[in-house]
């Protein structure tokens, strides 16, 4: 792997990506087209995020990679290894130690700081795509701020189900201008999109980069009388007892028995080592 340039991509390509990132930061929520490269991992598996991370990495960085909130899921392991091999940077599981965090489907529970960059992997960057399949049309809709259709979809949800039936990839409006897809994070994470950290979104296959700069206003679309509600399972974490985190539901036996655990593995472990306990924690470990 040493035959490849630092962080795999050549410097020319990184410059091109950085230009796209800067443009994205300058126009919050706007999808910047970029000449996405063919990466040695499949499209749809984080090629956009990997390219953004590669363009941001310096030898002094500490990288954390999560998928579904966990550091040890296979794709997170694979991407982390890729950067260990090609960039030889320090890696960590701890959110607070990382300078760059690449994520798929979650925002870490531990609050981010101004010194951090959060890179999202994005499958379909266009929030209007499933209302209007044509790129030529959706670009026009963004340019003219024609977002009525987006609310029609929410209206239809309420008319049919009594609620807005979008549970993840919940659309937001950035700085009162662009409607943006926050990537398929659960809507529980949406409030965390207003953050001191730089948030960068990379969609490799769709050749788009967009950004939410620090302290940018991000509003989840809703109605006054049906306000946006971040949702989580009504349980406590069975390992650390947290009642404020996003939980995974795990089936533990053939009788439908289940436990709930934090999806953010680092957050959960940190709490456990600080002495927090849940229903299923081994008793002898209690401090």
């Amino acid at each position: 792997m040493s035959d490849y340039n630092f962080a795999y991509l050549d410097e020319q390509t990184k410059r091109m990506i950085r230009r796209a990132i800067l443009k994205g930061v300058a126009i919050p929520g706007y999808q910047v087209p970029f000449a996405s490269r063919e990466m040695p991992m499949p499209y749809g598996w984080g090629t956009g995020g990997v390219q953004v991370t590669a363009a941001c990495l310096t030898p002094d960085d500490t990288l954390k990679v999560i998928d579904q909130g966990a550091d040890d899921t296979t794709n997170a392991v694979s991407i982390r290894k890729f950067f260990e091999n090609t960039a030889d940077v320090a890696v960590t599981g701890q959110t607070s130690e990382a300078s760059i965090i690449q994520t798929r489907h979650r925002i870490p529970e531990h609050p981010l700081t101004e010194d951090q960059i959060l890179v999202y992997q994005v499958p379909i960057p266009e929030p209007l795509r499933f209302l209007e399949p044509r790129e030529t049309e959706t670009r026009k809709m963004h340019a003219l701020e024609e977002y009525g259709l987006m609310h029609v979809k929410l209206y239809e949800d309420i008319a049919r189900h009594g609620h807005i039936a979008t549970a993840y990839a919940y659309p937001v409006k950035v700085e009162d201008r662009y409607v943006m897809d926050p990537s398929p994070i659960p809507k529980f994470d949406n409030p965390k999109l207003e953050s001191p950290a730089i948030q960068l979104f990379g969609a490799g296959r769709e050749q788009r980069i967009y950004a939410v700069p620090p302290f940018t206003k991000v509003v989840s679309l809703d109605f006054e009388d049906h306000p946006f509600e971040p949702a989580r399972a009504e349980h406590e974490c069975d390992l650390c007892g947290a009642d404020h985190t996003y939980l995974d539901e795990v089936i533990i036996d053939d009788n439908g028995g289940r436990m709930f655990v934090c999806s953010d593995t680092d957050y959960c472990e940190t709490r456990q080592s600080a002495g927090h306990r849940g229903k299923f924690s081994p008793k002898e470990n209690a401090a």
């Binding site: 749809g44 598996w45 998928d67 579904q68 794709n75 609620h163 993840y168 398929p184 949702a231």
Partner: peptide, 25 residues
């Protein structure tokens, strides 16, 4: 092929959020 096969990747966070919604509805 990449996008088709990426649905093999874990999606349990999204699935969990849908699960909660369907239960509620």
């Amino acid at each position: 092929t990449g996008f088709l096969e990426h649905i093999k990747l874990p999606h349990y966070v999204d699935f969990q959020s849908e699960l909660e919604l369907v239960r509620k509805l």
